[in-house]
């Protein structure tokens, strides 16, 4: 196994534990915004898409990357905005 893979596995396992710890405490009231908010974070593959599309070594890879950017950005922007819309509605008392 290469060093990069080993480091990656360490990071993956530790981040999973961090995720479990942080998310376990979220109250049921917020489960839907939590799901859509984390959903937006999963659009992080846009980073990979940018690297693939911005690399002019082969055209098909560029095109696949471009499509991936569009899909991932819908995921990211749609997810964060709709979460914000939901959370905006949660209030203690009417103003």
């Amino acid at each position: 196994m290469s060093d990069a893979l080993l480091t990656g596995l360490f990071v993956f396992v530790l981040a999973s534990f961090a995720g479990f710890e942080v998310i376990n405490k979220v109250p049921p009231t917020l489960h839907t915004p939590l799901m859509s908010g984390t959903n937006a974070i999963s659009g992080i593959s846009v980073v990979g898409a940018l690297l693939a599309a911005g690399n002019h070594e082969s055209t098909l890879a560029t095109w696949l990357g471009m499509v991936a950017i569009v899909l991932a950005m819908i995921n990211v922007v749609g997810g964060f905005l709709v979460t914000d819309r939901m959370l905006h509605m949660f209030r203690k008392k009417e103003a």
């Binding site: 990069a4 893979l5 480091t7 990656g8 990071v11 993956f12 396992v13 981040a15 999973s16 534990f17 961090a18 995720g19 479990f20 942080v22 998310i23 376990n24 939590l34 799901m35 984390t38 959903n39 974070i41 999963s42 992080i44 593959s45 980073v47 990979g48 690297l51």
Partner: peptide, 22 residues
Amino acid sequence: GFILANNMLVVAGALVGASGLI
């Protein structure tokens, strides 16, 4: 993240993986 050797992608993905599972 593993393909591109990018740990930030690995972290973000693991967080979402954990939350969805919970």
